[in-house]
Design a protein around this nucleic acid. Structure first.
Lengths: 181, 181
DNA sequence: TCACTCATGTAACAGGTTACATGATTCC
DNA sequence: GGAATCATGTAACCTGTTACATGAGTGA
């Protein structure tokens, strides 16, 4: 499991509450590792039990108390151990591919519409990534260390979305030619 | 959940046992939908209860009895219903991206080695996909219906692996330049 | 007044992973 | 003799998803 490790990386960049982490997982780090707030609270509790993080309770007025989590030395050690580990590429599960493969058992036009929906989604996502790149990494060749690594991950997102977008276009063109309306 | 639907698509192409399905999920359909034999047996039982498939027990000599599953009319209906459904793109979880983003908190060279391992994996996978394309789809422009859809899914796999391969190369080049040995 | 944000959680369930178990046959 | 193949499963556990719950403050 890498959720713990994704949290360690994120908390090392900057300490935060479960709530804040949940929002980071809705963007930035969440672009390549999805997690809901329930998963995050549950995992933070476990990490606290393991002493990978320390929690500092902060009272606030007019707001519920919050727990600010920080990575502990043990947590940093665990992260280093995990970074040295080898692992297999993620097993993929693409609903859309299953739908395309089964298209002729149902209504191929409905499947083509679904592909078009996904195309729009990937185009939007790609725009978001490119906007982030332009804003946060205007001069990529000057990057080093952590900033370089952050940019490289973003580059992965851009490449993946580009490939998905091209694929959707290829599928749509081929299906349109197979069944011109 | 789409495992049921992936099984329906696969069984519609050709009936088979849980064991056979498990092996199909090690290749072809498994390239874009992973499943273990335990998941498949469990799911087939549920699908049998729901009457989406019918099981025919076949006695064999020298071999354990087997159950050959076929898609039922109800199963075909369920598949058609699902094909008309809309869904969101799969939520991704890339360990490797988390490792790259955290590289500077550990040993960046160890992470680079891990990227190189993944690069080899993707290169192999791409070779496999291209070999299948050459063998099974020598004339893509002549394809229609089911065969066309099968080819389009394979194209998705090829595009995804190409993108991952390029990304690994980009990451390796950038990390090497950042930390020349 | 109503929706949204901040902040944390419980509970139930669905889905996925890992380990273990059985037993004959075929191939090296 | 030992490994791989065919064939099916149980059990325990870990992860992930969905729904529900609370409660104050902020802004339209």
């Amino acid at each position: 499991m890498a959720l713990e490790h994704a949290i360690l990386v994120s908390l090392d960049e900057r300490p935060g509450t479960g709530y804040e982490l949940a929002r980071r997982f809705d963007k930035s780090i969440g672009f390549f590792w999805a997690a809901t707030h329930q998963q995050i609270y549950r995992t933070l509790k476990r990490m606290d039990d393991l002493r990978w993080v320390t929690a500092e309770e902060v009272a606030q007025d007019g707001r519920p108390d919050k727990k600010v989590y920080r990575v502990s030395p043990e947590g940093r050690q665990e992260l280093q151990r995990w970074l040295r580990e080898t692992g297999e590429p993620a097993t993929v599960r693409h609903d859309l591919a299953v739908k395309i493969r089964g298209a002729s058992l149902g209504d191929p036009r409905a499947v083509a519409e679904e592909v078009a929906r996904h195309r729009r989604h990937h185009a939007e996502r790609l725009d978001v990534y490119r906007a982030i790149e332009k804003k946060d990494f205007p001069d990529p060749s000057a990057l080093h260390g952590r900033r370089l690594h952050q940019h490289l991950v973003l580059r992965g997102g851009i490449k993946a979305e580009e490939a998905l977008l091209e694929w959707c276009d290829e599928v749509l063109a081929a299906m349109r030619e197979d069944d011109p309306r």
